[in-house]
Design a protein around this nucleic acid. Structure first.
Lengths: 343, 343
DNA sequence: CACCGTTGGGAAAACTCTTTCCCAGAGTAG
DNA sequence: CTACTCTGGGAAAGAGTTTTCCCAACGGTG
C-alpha cells in the first residue's frame, strides 16, 4: 500500500541517521551537520523522492510560506495587472500566492482574510478601492489587527484609510494634470462619468479633476456629473443617461478606462464620433485597451509595479512603526480620443 | 504575552469539556454531541474568537482545503478569464485558491505543482496550451502522477496530451467554421499569423483553418503563413513581416485575439484600413477587446465557463477511470473587421 | 432484574515536522 | 593531566488538530 509520499522519518532511517539530523540537512538550520552525514541524507532524500509536508512545517515553525492577495475581480485587467506584480515578487521569494476574490463584497473580504489567517499566511496584499463605508472598514480593520497580532503583515493598494502600509496612486494629482491638459487643449465645459459615489478611488479622481477646473476658473455644472457602475457597462449606461438629458460639454472624463470604453461605445451607438463630436478621456491606461480606436487619452498608472511594491512592503518584516504610504504618480497620456473642441 | 491566537484546547477548557468534544462541535463530525455541550462550546469559541489552525487540520486530516491554479501569465486576459471561472467554483466550495504563474517555463510549472503537492492540495487546474515538447511533458506527467498517488486530482484546460481530465476548446472546428464563414463572404486568398510553431493551440487553429480551406478547394500559399509570438506584439511584428514581403491575401487570420489586435495596429500604422484594404479575424473573443474599432470578427470561447468546468472535473473525486475530455465548441462572431473583398 | 445495544463523553495516539536539551567525544589551555 | 569549551549527534518535547478506542450511563427487551 503506497501512501504516495515519503516522510522525513523514512529518509532518516534510510540514511541511518536520526530524525533531527535529517531535518537539519534538508532545511539548512543553524546547526552544522558533518559532510559525511549530509551527503548520505541528501542521497536518501533524492532516492526516495522526499517532499516535505508543508502543513507539518507550518505547524512546527508556526509560520508558513503563503502570501495572500485579495482583489475584487481577477478578470478585471486593472486587478490582473496588479496581481501579476504581486505574483512576480512572491515567486522570487519562493512564496506561494493565495488568490481571493471578493466581487466587491466586504463580507467575502473578511472571510478570505480570516482564511489566510487560519493558514498562518506571512503577508496579505489587499487591492482595490474600498467603499467609504465606516462600518465595513471597522470589521476589516479588526481582521487586519488580528492578523498583525499573529505576526502577519498587510499592505494595501489604492486605499489609505486602514492602518497598514499602502501603495496608492495619486488619483487627485493625476486627474488634475489630466484636467489641465484638457483645458490647455481648449475645453471649457466638461462632463464626468464619476462612478459609484461612495468608492474612494472614483471620488478622488472626481475631486482632483474638479479642483483643477476650479483653479482654472472653470465651473463644473452639477447636471454634468453622472454616477454609475465602475465597469464598461456602467460607462455605457451612464453615457446614455448623460446624453439623454442633453449636455453642453465638449469633453467627457470617465474616471477609469473601462468606463471610458463603454462611453465611446455608447457614443458610437448614438452616431456621435469621438473626438469630433465629443472628446473622451479615461484613467489607468489598461494595456489591453491601448489599441482602441480612437486611442484613449488617459492617465497611466504603473499597476504591475504597484503590485510589486505592495508585496515588498507587506513582506518587509523589520518595519514596525507607523504605516507607510507610498504614493505613485500617474502620467497623462495624450492620445486621439481628445482633441481641441470645434468652436 | 498574547500569542495572537486561541487554540481549540483553550476553547475546550473554557467550555469545561474535553478537546475531543470541542473538536466534534467545531467541525460537524459524524459523532453526536449533546445540545447542552454543543452550545457551551460554541459560546466559548465565539467569546474567545477561536479560529482553527489550518495547517494543524491539514496535518491531522491529511487533506487540505487548497486548490491550485496554474497559468502562464495572469495579466493575459485569456488566463484571467479562466481564473475567474476557477475562482468562482473554488469559492463556492469554500476552497482556498493558490495561483501559480509559469511565464511559459515548464521548470516553473513543475516547481509550482510540487509546491502544491507539498501543501496537500485537493486538486489542481493547469491552464494554458503546452508546447509540443515531449521531454518537458514527461517531467510534468511524473509530477501529476505523484500528485495522483497522494490522492490529488488534476484537470487541464486546453491541452490533451497528459493523462488527466481535460477541458479543451475545439480549436480545429472553431477555426474551420471561421474559415467557412470567410470563404462564404467571398475571400479566396488568406494569410495567417500562426503563432509559435510548437504551441499546440496555435497549431490546431492553423490546421483547422487550413483543412476547411482545402475542403473548399482553396490553397494556402506557404509564404502567407508567418510564425511569431502569441502576443499582441507578436501579432504586430508578424504583420509587419508579412506585409514587407508583400501578400496577395484579402483576409488575415490571427490565431488569437491579441495577435489580431497587434495586426490591426500594424496595418493602421502602415496606412491600411481594416476591413477595406484587408479583413482581419481573430480567435477567443476576449471581452476587453470587444470594443475595438473595427470590432473584431472572431470565434467566441466561453473561457470563464471552461475554467469552472475544469475545476468541477478536478474536484469530482468519485471518478476514477480513464481521463475524461470535455470539448467546448466555439461560435463564430461575425463583426466589422471582416467584409467581402473588393474585387 | 439481568442482558444487550446505543449514545455521548474523554483519554490518548496519530499526523509530520522543528527545536530544545542532553550527552559523548575531541580539542585546548593551564 | 585535569578542566573546560566546542562540535555534532540523537532523544524527546512540542506545534494544534482529528480520530480511535475505551468506558459509563441509559433505555429497552425477555
Amino acid at each position: 500500500m503506497d501512501p504516495g509520499y515519503v516522510t522525513l522519518e523514512q529518509v532518516a532511517e534510510h540514511a541511518g541517521v536520526s530524525l533531527a539530523t535529517a531535518s537539519r540537512v534538508i532545511n539548512g538550520s543553524t546547526r552544522q551537520v558533518s559532510q559525511r552525514l549530509r551527503e548520505k541524507v541528501e542521497a536518501s532524500a533524492h532516492e526516495l523522492g522526499y517532499l516535505a509536508n508543508a502543513s507539518a512545517q507550518t505547524l512546527a515553525r508556526n509560520s508558513s510560506s503563503l502570501m495572500g492577495l485579495v482583489v475584487h475581480d481577477i478578470a478585471d485587467p486593472y486587478f490582473s495587472q496588479i496581481a501579476a506584480g504581486v505574483t512576480r515578487y512572491a515567486e522570487e521569494l519562493g512564496l506561494v500566492l493565495v488568490l481571493g476574490t471578493t466581487n466587491r463584497s466586504t463580507q467575502a473580504e473578511t472571510r478570505i482574510i480570516s482564511a489566510l489567517r487560519s493558514h498562518r499566511a506571512k503577508a496579505i496584499v489587499i487591492a482595490g478601492s474600498r467603499t467609504t463605508s465606516e462600518e465595513s472598514d471597522a470589521r476589516l480593520a479588526k481582521e487586519i489587527e488580528a492578523f498583525g497580532r499573529q505576526g502577519g503583515r498587510v499592505a494595501l493598494v489604492s486605499q489609505a484609510t486602514l492602518p497598514a502600509d499602502t501603495v496608492t496612486p495619486n488619483n487627485h494629482s493625476g486627474a488634475a494634470a489630466l484636467a489641465q491638459h484638457l483645458v490647455a487643449q481648449g475645453h471649457r465645459r466638461f462632463a464626468i462619468l464619476a462612478g459609484p459615489p461612495n468608492l474612494r478611488t472614483a471620488r478622488e479622481r472626481l475631486d482632483g479633476f474638479h479642483c483643477a477646473l476650479s483653479a482654472a476658473g472653470l465651473e463644473l455644472a452639477h447636471h454634468n456629473v453622472v454616477h454609475g457602475d465602475f465597469t464598461r457597462d456602467g460607462g455605457y449606461e451612464s453615457t446614455r443617461r448623460l446624453m439623454a438629458l442633453g449636455t453642453d460639454a465638449t469633453c467627457l472624463f470617465a474616471v477609469n478606462d473601462v468606463m471610458a470604453t463603454g462611453a465611446i461605445a455608447a457614443l458610437r451607438a448614438m452616431g456621435k464620433t469621438v473626438p469630433e463630436d465629443l472628446s473622451v478621456a479615461g484613467f489607468d491606461d489598461i494595456p489591453t485597451l491601448r489599441d482602441l480606436t480612437p486611442s484613449l487619452t488617459t492617465v497611466r498608472l504603473p499597476l504591475e509595479e504597484m503590485g510589486e511594491r505592495a508585496a515588498a512592503l507587506a513582506l518587509d518584516s523589520d518595519h514596525h512603526g507607523e504605516p507607510r504610504v507610498v504614493s505613485v504618480e500617474g502620467t497623462v497620456m495624450a492620445r486621439e480620443s481628445t482633441a481641441p473642441p470645434r468652436n
